[in-house]
Design a binder for these strands. Sequence first.
DNA 1: ATAATTTTTGCATACGTATCTATTTTAGAT
DNA 2: ATCTAAAATAGATACGTATGCAAAAATTAT
Lengths: 338, 338
Amino acid sequence: MTKEKVTSQQVAQLAGVSQSAVSRVYTAGASASKKTTAKVHKAATTLGYRPNVLARAMVSGKSRIIGLFVGYLENQFYPDAIEKLSTQLQVKGYHVLIFMASKTAGNIDSVVEEILDYQVEGIIVASVALSSQLADRCRLAGVPIVLFNRSQDGEGLSCVTSDNFSGGAKAARFLLAGGHKKIGYIAGWEGASTQRDREFGFTAALQQAGGTLYAREVGDFSMEKASEATRQMFSEDSPDAVFVANDHMAFAVMDTLRFELGLRIPEDVSVISYDDVPAAAWPAYNLTTVRQCADQMVQETVRILMEQIHSDGMQGQQVAIGSPIIVRGSARIPEGWE
Amino acid sequence: MTKEKVTSQQVAQLAGVSQSAVSRVYTAGASASKKTTAKVHKAATTLGYRPNVLARAMVSGKSRIIGLFVGYLENQFYPDAIEKLSTQLQVKGYHVLIFMASKTAGNIDSVVEEILDYQVEGIIVASVALSSQLADRCRLAGVPIVLFNRSQDGEGLSCVTSDNFSGGAKAARFLLAGGHKKIGYIAGWEGASTQRDREFGFTAALQQAGGTLYAREVGDFSMEKASEATRQMFSEDSPDAVFVANDHMAFAVMDTLRFELGLRIPEDVSVISYDDVPAAAWPAYNLTTVRQCADQMVQETVRILMEQIHSDGMQGQQVAIGSPIIVRGSARIPEGWE
DNA sequence: ATAATTTTTGCATACGTATCTATTTTAGAT
DNA sequence: ATCTAAAATAGATACGTATGCAAAAATTAT
């Protein structure tokens, strides 16, 4: 393609000032007189000049780029979060370089290397596990990492999650209060901290009430697997309630219960899950679920990232956002539930 | 944060070669002997060296960055497309800098300026309209643009869409073949070419069969508006079939028909729409819809972009991908439909 | 009006890499 | 072994900007 590069040099020439003067006009906090500022702006608009972010990044070491590393976007929670993240960072003058952890495009580690090649100022990792070498490498390069919706032990990494343990417990108490006796759980991918913490919270609350898990299957956060898990779980001696590790799977579970097994929700079986993605509120599902407050999670993520970027070698922060239960119609509502 | 920058200079020193030798080792198609290549690689791994993409971009003029400008991600079609786009570009050595056209972060034009500031090699615009000044500006800067799922007249811009006209026509013929007499249409945002073309195709096919549109409302591609449009359309003398401009709205339409108006689908009213997002296949909706083949659209988008990047001042290309109708259960199936 | 201070400015340099040019090394041919 | 052609290498420069430094201009104080 034909190029037409307008440089600060050309602007300087047209404005009759030095290149450094032009640079100072576009650098916040640098000194330039009213007169030169005006001349420069005039020349700049005439030529259509805009500072080259990449060149600026080279000399200043600030790329204004945040690397976003994300596993998959099928679960609506993530697009939602990406939109919010990108928008908030944009406001702060940063932009998001996105990297998919797809299987086809090499392994995780090589992708992180690619991210670092772009001299990003920070990395947000959503729904992907990071090897400790990688974490070290980023630490060495001075690039802060924030895990979004995942936590990872032992690395001292910053992370932002919802309070999965307490959220899981809330789900259990809700089902117990509804008088359910045979409560099943459909797990997500067992390598995920979210899965683990939700299950811990859920079973802990069950046990505290003297109950126990009636059935358990694994859905790996996939709809197909979740359907299969449902068939398995309801093949004999069906539970009267199921907690599903996230909404995405819950949709599949509900569809399987209704359209394959002919069960009514919540009359025959209560379903409750976790996330509160937009579709949970759609009348077809009307799903009772524990909300992950994407707005707050994003806000905290951005805050931590900014703090780490602007301070030297700051400690990792672990933040868990409160997760309220959103009562809709997919699970029997306990008598006198406030 | 603390920095530890490893430069080609340091690698050169350790390897006992010149900086240019190191550069040539990492530049495809440059000449370097087996021996130096080995020495350089050894030194590079020792120090943990990787070329700085930004510095490379400065001198070569190739940033390996593609700007992706997207309106909103609520409609699952877009996250899906983004995932595919990003993955395919990653394979080709490009990466995606994402920009949200949110209302909170300034107007469209300023966002495009920001994209250009990053010296992107190309821009993909999804579901956003571009002013002609902007298009000119990009042309001037030598940055090719491809519109994704939108077309725009008169600018000579490249675009990739599905064949919306013929897709709309297919929807009409399907409903007609099903014996429907009172056919309504719920439009998307009327500024969108996709909306326009789908409607043209739909009404053209109706008229060709001697029919005419029985009712029409506007849903603006929003679920709330679509629900409202549905209530309006079915407030008196209801249609026996509705074509909805995209799946995203169709979900709201179906929910409203079923849970507010108590109508059965497809017994009382047939619903058909456009996109075939994953949720369309969920049993709760089981939506008959015209498929936009995201894979092919993405593939064409990437192809065109690459062509434009690697050739000087190439003509814009307009590509429309075939859009098959996917028959499920939300619309009455015509007798003997193959 | 002069001196002391502050602000503004231009010059030179640096950021990390690719690439052009000239030179040296290597391989090939006689 | 000598000459020629090809390959490899080091040195120098350029990309577009920010910034330290010293000189110049503008402002203030005396």
